[in-house]
């Protein structure tokens, strides 16, 4: 019974918790094996012929492997441009991996059926993902009608209204167009649409970046509740490390297309081992320390077109030694966490 999943109104029956065969967190739902994504960003072939420029390949994601367990949240953190959205797009099938394999495992649903999980994405850019010519009500109703999640039109409308209220908008907003909403309101519309699909696996690319902290708290609390009640699985991308800490079971720190540290979130937060992870945690802006001069990370931001030799973090790493400029450190397990640093 996933009917009233996201309804907040008290007078409706409380939703029935899903009976998951194994306890949530035990079974793998997504398996990513050595995924790579490369883009050819060369100048057009003809002009290359004259200028003798070589082909330029941008390595957006390089050799990334991980698994996500059902009913948990796996977060990816890293610098802007390090490949998070590209990885997310590969997971939902919007981007074909150049190499490697991404596969979802079948799950057993509440009604006893077994099949592949339903996957849905909340996009980083809410503007681009909402059709400006559709009313908000139709935008949210589309997946409900498409997937035949409700039997009749009245039930569809009821569900749309409930979803709008769930994300802190009002039922009457259904008749308006996206341009009449503020940035954060649009982000909430795209969250409502993602919830409308009743997906089992949600890929959330910066889902709350446009929201004020109070609405953000409402949305995050809702996501946690849905996870507890229905065993939803999240792949979560955010630059806000406080939000990541609140949400994550597992955490991967990405740098220039690769994972440099990955493991249980609490462990990574309390005992960061990779120099980049430590720098990241050090650079967080803090309300408690106003007007602090935050030092931006020193060193040129490297480019995924011509990544540095050896450890890709070496130009910015205070601990870098000669070996770091020649030999790339492999990910290796250090007390439950995978780290790629020669000196960790």
């Amino acid at each position: 019974m996933r009917d009233n999943v996201t309804t907040l109104t008290q007078d409706q029956a409380m939703p029935q918790p899903v009976m998951i065969e194994t306890a949530p967190g035990d079974d793998i739902i997504l398996d990513v094996a050595a995924a790579c994504c490369r883009f050819d960003v060369s100048a057009p072939a003809l002009s290359r012929l004259f200028s003798h420029e070589p082909r330029r390949i941008l390595r957006a994601v390089e050799n990334v492997s991980f698994t996500v367990k059902r009913g948990t949240t796996f977060s990816i953190v890293g610098e802007s441009g390090c490949g998070k959205s590209t990885l997310a797009r590969m997971v939902v099938g919007l981007q074909r991996p150049t190499e490697g394999k991404l596969s979802f495992r079948d799950i057993r649903r509440a009604d006893g059926t077994i099949g592949p999980p339903r996957v849905q994405m909340i996009f980083q850019d809410p503007y681009a993902s909402l059709n400006p010519r559709w009313r908000v009500g139709d935008i949210i109703a589309e997946p409900i009608r498409e997937l035949k999640l409700r039997s009749d039109e009245a039930a569809v409308q009821q569900r749309v209204g409930d979803l709008l209220e769930t994300v802190g908008l009002s039922r009457t907003d259904a008749s308006r167009y996206p341009h009449a909403f503020s940035g954060g309101q649009r982000q909430r519309i795209s969250i409502a649409r993602a919830l409308a699909t009743e997906a089992d696996f949600l890929v959330c690319d910066e889902p709350t970046s446009a929201l004020d902290v109070s609405v953000q708290a409402q949305i995050l609390n809702l996501m946690v509740r849905l996870q507890k009640e229905f065993g939803l699985t999240y792949l979560f991308i955010s630059h806000n490390l406080s939000v990541v800490r609140h949400m994550s079971d597992d955490l991967a720190i990405m740098y220039l297309g690769r994972f440099v540290e990955a493991g249980p979130a609490e462990q990574v937060f309390t005992k960061p081992q990779h120099p980049y992870t430590r720098l990241l945690l050090d650079t967080i802006p803090d309300v408690e320390r106003p007007n602090r001069e935050r030092r931006p990370m020193s060193g040129e931001v490297p480019s995924p077109i011509s990544p540095p030799a050896g450890c890709t973090f070496n130009p910015r790493c205070a601990q870098a030694a000669n070996r770091c400029r020649v030999v790339r450190p492999e990910l290796r397990k250090l007390g439950g966490v995978e780290v790629s640093c020669h000196f960790a």
Partner: peptide
């Protein structure tokens, strides 16, 4: 005050975030 209390902390993990219940009124209400 409610806004300041809703900020998640990076130093500790909470079970539940503080939130201001309810929603901002629409322009017509």
């Amino acid at each position: 005050a409610g806004l300041m209390a809703s900020i998640p902390s990076v130093h500790v993990r909470h079970e539940h975030l503080n939130q201001i219940d309810g929603a901002m009124p629409r322009l017509n209400a």
